[in-house]
Structure formats: structure tokens, C-alpha cells
Write a protein that binds this DNA or RNA. Structure first.
Lengths: 130, 130
DNA sequence: GAAATATCGGACCTATTCAGTCCGACTTCC
DNA sequence: GGAAGTCGGACTGAATAGGTCCGATATTTC
């Protein structure tokens, strides 16, 4: 339904927070400020870290901080880190080609649309969320 | 997950078929040619008709036909007819504004992104699927 | 060294949505 | 009147999203 998940929404909120504040913030701090489930947000930040968008510090006085400049974190990367299936349709993303090609001819236009949307996503950065 | 539903996919295939062939086609004909569930496709075409994109003829030798030119049927309209929730995020679509505005500042950029995607969808027409 | 405060990570549950099915009613042509 | 269509509602099953729980590990502070 052409909708971004809550994971991405919360992830963006967290990134925006980290960018605004600078330095280290804890999951608790962010989850309370924006009223996001603690456990859920914890998983999201772990995923963002796994993807190299943010860095983590364990133990007391630990937390998360940006690893990149806000300008260099695009929505594309955030979505890639937090969602499995990207792509508006099966046939828009598969390089293999659709089994129905022969009768169905929507594949090429969908590829093109996909490219347009990808470009739109890549043009939004965390810096613009501040 | 920024994905179009099967309903839209099948709807586009059907519209493309109607545009290519011109005149009237039955649900059975289309469902068999593209290997789409008959019942599901029937519902989709009913929705498209309800929205005024296609016209229906009941009884023997009945079926569906385009009511508009392929050029004038945009993907925006198809999605609008076949999906409830359009919009990439709650805060990207609501005019009311988000309850978290105060701390969270992603609303405006998301509105903008939404507009970009809407524009991309509106630029694709059934004519381009042929 | 113990306690407090963090992240780490896997298992789990639940609600919603999507895709698909079934079936009875109505309409029209031959 | 029967065949071939659309119409429309109820229902089911599977996948996914959103959210929870809990034990382990790391680091700082007292």
C-alpha cells in the first residue's frame, strides 16, 4: 500500500533526535521523549547500528550516536536498514524478469517508476529532518 | 514497506489488457490469460467500475471496457480506487498535524516526500503500459 | 567487587492486513 | 428457460507488522 513502516518512522525520529542533540543518547531517553515502545525502539537502533548508520556504546553512560553526518544519511539507507522488502512490485525489482512477460507489459514502466521513487527517497536526508 | 498491493498489480494488468484490446473483455478472459484468480480479479474490476475507470455490461456477451482514454487513467487513480490507505506515513497525509509535533520534526519533510511520490504516480498512465 | 545502567539478541505473542475462496442473487442474450 | 455474464457479501488462511519478555553481556561508578 505504498506505506513506510513504523520501524522506519521511529528510526527517522531517533536519527533526527541524535542529529539535533549531537553526542550520545540512550534508547530510554528517546523512547520517553517521543512515546515510542522501548523494546521496539531498541531493536530499531540495533538494526541501524548493524548497518553502520549509528554507533553504540555499552554500559553505564552508554547509548547511541550518529556515525555519519546528517547530510550523508539518506532515507534510502534508513529504509534499507530497517525493512526487508523494498520495491513497489515483484516485477519492478527482479532483474530476472516476470514469468508473465509475453502477455503482460507493465514490467518496464514499473521499473521506471521504481527508479523515480528510489531517487525521491535518496534525496531526503536526516539533515532535512532537523 | 513502500509496496503496491497485488490488487493494484492485477488492476493494472487488466487495464492494460482492456486498453490493448479495446472493446469489451470478460473477467474470465483476463483471469485466464494472466493466470489471476477469477474471484479476486472480479472484485478488482468491480472496484474500478465503482470508481468510474471502466464500464460494465451485464448478461451474456457482457464484460468490462474502458470508460476513459488510456492516457487519462493515471496510476494515482488506480491506486485510489483499489487501496484504502494511500500515503507513506500517518503524518505525511493528515492535515490535522501530528500529536508529537513539538519534539518531532519529520512531518514537513514527509509531506514533501509524499508530494513527490504522488507526482511520480500521477505521471504514469495506462497508455504507458501498452 | 558489587550494583546500576546500558546495549545485545532471540523467542514469543497478537492484531491487522492481504490474498484468495465460496456462494447466492441479479441481468441479459439467444 | 438456460447459458454466460456481473454484483456483492461473508468467510478463511497466511503473511506481516507491531509490540513484548527476558536473559546475557558490557561498562561505569561507588
Amino acid at each position: 500500500m505504498l506505506r513506510l513502516s513504523k520501524r522506519v518512522e521511529y528510526g527517522l525520529m531517533a536519527l533526527q533526535h541524535l542529529a539535533k542533540r549531537g553526542g550520545v543518547s540512550t534508547v530510554r531517553e528517546i523512547s520517553e521523549e517521543y512515546h515510542i515502545s522501548y523494546d521496539l525502539l531498541a531493536k530499531i537502533l540495533q538494526d541501524l547500528k548493524r548497518d553502520g548508520l549509528i554507533d553504540s556504546y555499552q554500559g553505564v553512560r552508554g547509548g547511541y550516536a550518529l556515525m555519519l553526518t546528517p547530510q550523508s544519511i539518506s532515507l534510502t539507507r534508513v529504509v534499507g536498514a530497517l525493512e526487508e522488502d523494498t520495491g513497489i512490485m515483484d516485477c519492478a525489482t527482479s532483474a530476472a524478469g516476470c514469468s508473465r512477460s509475453g502477455t503482460c507489459s507493465i514490467e518496464a514502466p514499473m521499473h521506471k517508476l521504481q527508479a523515480t521513487i528510489d531517487k525521491a527517497l535518496s534525496s531526503v536526508t536526516v539533515a532535512q529532518l532537523m
